[in-house]
């Protein structure tokens, strides 16, 4: 049998290299765009304010958005399977107030923490089972999760509960310093979540199945992959991240509050999309979502530097979201025409 030549002839030209790049790494382009936007924002802000790119400011960027970053990790898993999870904000509120009330009634953190994570994961499990086994559309199933989380948060307490537990407060108050740079344990939790998320997505069969399901669930099934388990698992992971974010936010604000995270699901979806994840599934990176969080945080910081209304944040992030969605749509339309 003769070898059939199908590969492009090797030619070391600029266009050839570009062709190889786009045929291999087209999926990274949106994330690269996000990095570019982040750099432009940071440099622009520095030039405008003169005192923007300081160690203090940049350290605060991670600190202030740690909970968002944790949520974004879970949301990336879900969106890459072409699903969506609207429940994350209220799951975070519920686990936060739940943990705070446990701690307030004298339960030690070693028990309260797993309880928070498990309760978050349980809501995720419920959503995943509805989606996978009962053919419920993800946004409807996670809407049930949203109602449930928010309602349960108010069942735990109608008002905020202060946290006195030293271990939990330590997570926020401790600052590991390197010159003017610092990082808190909550920041470390967020970074660790991102790293674990990225490794799982890239280096495990489960992670690759997440991508396969997002590419085509039917193909994945016919390829013999375990689609059902994977679909349920991504929602469990998202719920787990909701629980972890509840911990981080409770530590950050020193209290559990049942109204926390109203509308946060939208912020999370926005940062994940801005970070380069395709809402139609199959493409995206946890690291990209981290970039998305930094873009979000930077916009917020710039606005407070300018002394403008914080509501501008949502308008600008909404605009960026629109931009990314339209560009994604154009890319998809082009690849549809191409095939």
């Amino acid at each position: 049998m003769t070898a059939v030549e199908t590969a492009q002839p090797e030619r070391r030209t600029l266009t050839g290299a570009l062709g190889t790049f786009t045929s291999r790494h087209a999926a990274v382009l949106p994330t690269i765009a996000a990095v570019a936007i982040l750099i432009v924002l940071l440099v622009g802000a520095q030039m405008y304010f003169g005192n923007f790119l300081t160690a203090r400011n940049m350290s605060a960027l991670l600190l202030d958005n740690a909970y968002l970053m944790v949520l974004a990790v879970g949301m990336t898993f879900v969106i890459v399977t072409a699903g969506i999870d609207l429940s994350v904000g209220s799951v975070m509120a519920f686990t936060g107030i739940f943990g705070a009330s446990l701690l307030a009634s004298g339960v030690p953190l070693v028990i309260a923490l797993p309880a928070m994570l498990v309760s978050g994961a349980a809501i995720g499990l419920l959503i995943g089972v509805l989606v996978q086994y009962f053919n419920v559309q993800p946004f409807i199933a996670s809407l049930a999760g949203l109602f449930l989380g928010r309602g349960l948060a108010f069942v735990v307490s109608l008002s905020s509960i202060r946290v006195e537990d030293p271990a939990l407060l330590w997570l926020q108050s401790t600052r590991f310093r390197l010159g003017d740079w610092y990082i808190t344990p909550t920041g470390i939790i967020a970074i660790v979540a991102v790293v674990i998320g990225a490794l799982v997505m890239h280096f495990t069969r489960f992670g690759r199945t997440v991508y396969a399901v997002g590419g085509s669930a039917q193909s994945a099934r016919l390829m013999g992959l375990n689609v059902a388990r994977t679909t349920v698992m991504v929602y469990v992971i998202s719920g787990l991240c909701g629980g972890l974010a509840g911990l981080v936010l409770t530590a950050y604000s020193g209290a559990g509050y049942p109204r926390n995270g109203i509308g946060t699901e939208l912020d999370v979806i926005a940062v994940v999309v801005i970070g380069g994840t395709l809402l139609t599934g199959g493409r995206g990176y946890v690291l990209g979502s981290m970039i998305g969080v930094f873009v979000y945080g930077t916009i917020k910081t710039i606005i407070s530097f300018m002394g403008a209304e914080q509501s501008w944040t949502h308008i600008i992030v909404g605009g960026l979201l629109l931009l990314f969605i339209v560009v994604q749509r154009a890319i998809v339309a082009r690849s549809e025409r191409g095939s």
Binding site: R24, R205, R208, Y211, G215, S216, S219, L222, L225, G282
Partner: peptide
């Protein structure tokens, strides 16, 4: 209708689940 995942690389499509 090719039942592979067009969002993944050729190599990964060949090996998916058996990496």
């Amino acid at each position: 209708e090719v039942n592979l995942c067009s969002n993944l690389s050729v190599g990964e499509n060949v090996m998916l689940g058996h990496e």
